[in-house]
Amino acid sequence: MATATKRSKAEKSLVILLLIVGGVLVSLPFLWMISSSFKPENEVLAIPPTIIPDNPTIENYINLFTSMNFTVYLRNTIIIVLFSFLGLLFNAMAGYGFAKYEFKGRERIFYLVLATMMIPGQVTMIPVYLILNSMGLTNTMTGIILPGLAVAFSIFLFRQFMMTIPDDLIEAARLDGAGEFYIFFRLIIPIAKPIFAVQGILTFIAGWNSFLWPLIIANDESLYTLSVGLSLLQGQYANNFALQMAGAAFMVVPIIIIFAFFQKYIVEGFTMSGIK
């Protein structure tokens, strides 16, 4: 017994050591980004590079807002994130509709929703652009937001969760005279809080990171998102790595903070969705 615990203790130390080595390798790009973002422009090109900045400065972060239009990009990104939460509500409503109502064509429509998950993005990209173009929505905020609102995978996850809510509960609320939408907003949403948490985080991350569609649709800089702005910065200040790193950190750090707080929900969410 004593040798067994000794062996497992050594083994555990080895596992942790491996995790640390791997963890440092994986997070090296992030650490380098943070460190470089606080370096003045000349220090960032110094050879050999300094690991911790000699003359730390927050000038790069200020420059994002003074020499670049990061205020505008941030505003647009927040608009997209807010509307994607409206999309989240639509997906939840659809999930509830498929889970808790009997109606004509339910199976067929649901299979259609599932089928859209299998289509590669490249196939729909061009037609969606053509459709938006014929609606006169290219180079508008609406055109950026609209195609991303409904997400088939999200509808599917909501439906799976809502199926577990007992019918009796809804029936009882109906007998008390509650309307269908009242039931959804006051009864179902509070019960479905865990799935809303997962989907909410994933929606936030997707909205915050949205890049390709805004790039395709937006011609005016006033419609650019943070990622599009950052790629513009990369082109304009190709050799100012300190400024580039500050821009990247400005995009990445909020996501990391939010994720650090809510990672428990994301992991649980995958277990919930039954992927085992």
Binding site: I16, L19, I20, G22, G23, V26, S27, P29, F30, W32, M33, S36, I205, W208, N209, F211, L226, S227, V228, L230, S231, Q234, F241, Q244, M245, G247, A248, M251, V252, I255, I256, F259, A260, Q263, I266, V267
Partner: peptide
């Protein structure tokens, strides 16, 4: 320790692709 490392290994997958391009372009 294990929860922390789970977060560390997950981080790259939620990082914005442009930020990734900027950082790795520099690396």
């Amino acid at each position: 320790i294990f929860n922390t490392f789970r977060a560390v290994y997950y981080m790259p997958s939620i990082t914005n692709i442009i930020a990734v391009a900027v950082i790795w372009g520099y690396l």
